[in-house]
Design a protein around this nucleic acid. Structure first.
Lengths: 240, 240
DNA sequence: AGAGTAAAGTTGGAATCACAACTGATGGCC
DNA sequence: GGCCATCAGTTGTGATTCCAACTTTACTCT
């Protein structure tokens, strides 16, 4: 990192390093605002800012009159540690696939059939969507659905809308999330170096109690951070 | 909310409401620092703070010289919308049960046996742990494990440690997360009003490729928020 | 008209000062 | 010893001011 970084980031990064590396154990006191100004040679604004960022991340917790301490139960779970499990649904919040929607011809997939609760030899269609941000692929969604729902004319990516036309209503979503070091599978599409950690989201959409679509979403871990926040103010929670 | 709330929170809540309710569509400009000071009658600090909070939540994005705008793809996903899916592992990050650990006598549970990949009639022990924060139950974990690993003497809650004594090493965790409106099941323990949204985390601990423990974690949605952040600085990302 | 320039406005960062509410510890008093 | 009051320290919040870097707009000059 360049030394032209904001000064508060220097403080944040140093303290975060000490916490994540274990030098500062849970419960250990964090230097106070004034101590930080002296120790790092920064102003009060930068010190306050740094503490607030760390508190917002959930790494430390501040109590008025008592000071900041490393959290006993850090709610910030860096994804690369694989203790943080996370799923997101960019599809659901309106992220549009910028390109690369590939639908394979239907074939029998007994493993998927189990998730969809259909006959093992029932053909399913597989749709793979590569989401890109600034040209860089950031997410791969592999979606399966029973061929019976696919009339072949509608937009394959609009599962919910099309199913609505079939009189089905998506009422529930289930997910299966895990972190793993992938085999060289799918790395052709996402351009992942072998051995990198990813999140693998296994999702099933339900219409009533009937699974109608299931999908796999693969997200490289290094692109996101999961912050498990509590209602404002920042990180307020008794923690002892 | 009391009107003794911090001033900046008034601004945050008003703008957040306008965004989530759709009054401010994605791409719409947000009042600038100076406009906020005038419109809300607050100081510059409060205005800046409010904008930073919203940016940190991912609802808006600021660009130097150009101003703040509502994000095209908000990365803040309120859990109660069920578009945000989320899992956490309080167990793994050292959250201790404050009370209410109940272990039932072992019995056959074919549904759980499938998850554990054991014979359908193999008895499993069920442990239910109610986690409390300030006396209020905030989380229920229902854990199952094959009776063969349970010698009945060790702490039932320390699955990982005990399994280590059996020569097994937990190498992987899989999770299954879904939001649902629960039946009146478990509401006796968590005191959930019927119909409330919860997160249901279905988790399996693996030793190598062998599942050794599986559990259900139920968390009421109103207690948490998932923020899907990007690396610092706040919300920086070209978004157009 | 067109191109380049200047000005105004905006954000991110930062310093300094201030104050209310709270905590922990100290010390004095019974 | 035990109890209570005081006090220094800390956080959360807030105001004010300033600056660099950047964008947008308007204007001037050719």
């Amino acid at each position: 990192m360049a030394n032209s970084d904001p000064v508060y980031l220097r403080v944040v990064e140093d303290l975060r390093r000490q916490i994540t590396e274990g030098l500062l154990q849970p419960g250990a006191p964090i230097p106070s605002r004034h101590q930080i100004t002296r120790k790092y040679g920064v102003g009060e604004t930068a010190a306050r800012h740094a503490l607030r960022v760390l508190a917002q991340e959930g790494l430390i917790i501040g109590r008025v009159g008592s000071g900041h301490r490393v959290r006993q139960r850090p709610d910030l779970l860096p994804l690369h540690r694989a203790q943080a499990h996370f799923s997101t649904d960019m599809h659901a919040v309106g992220r549009r696939p910028t390109c690369d929607v590939k639908t394979d011809s239907a074939e029998a997939r007994p493993d998927i059939a189990v998730r969809l609760r259909i006959a093992a030899q029932s053909p399913v269609t597989r749709t793979r969507i590569v989401y890109r941000s600034d040209g860089k692929p950031v997410q791969l969604a592999v979606s399966y659905e029973p061929i019976v729902y696919n009339d072949g004319t509608d937009d394959i990516t609009q599962v919910a809308h099309r199913l609505g036309g079939n009189g089905l209503k998506l009422t529930e979503v289930t997910e299966h999330v895990y972190a793993r070091v992938p085999q060289p599978v799918e790395s052709d599409v996402l351009d992942l170096p072998a051995g990198v950690h990813v999140l693998h989201v296994e999702r099933t959409h339900w219409a009533g109690d009937k699974p109608v679509e299931t999908s796999d979403v693969i997200i490289p871990c290094d692109q996101f951070r999961l912050v498990y926040t509590l209602p404002a103010p920042y990180g307020e929670q008794t923690n002892r």
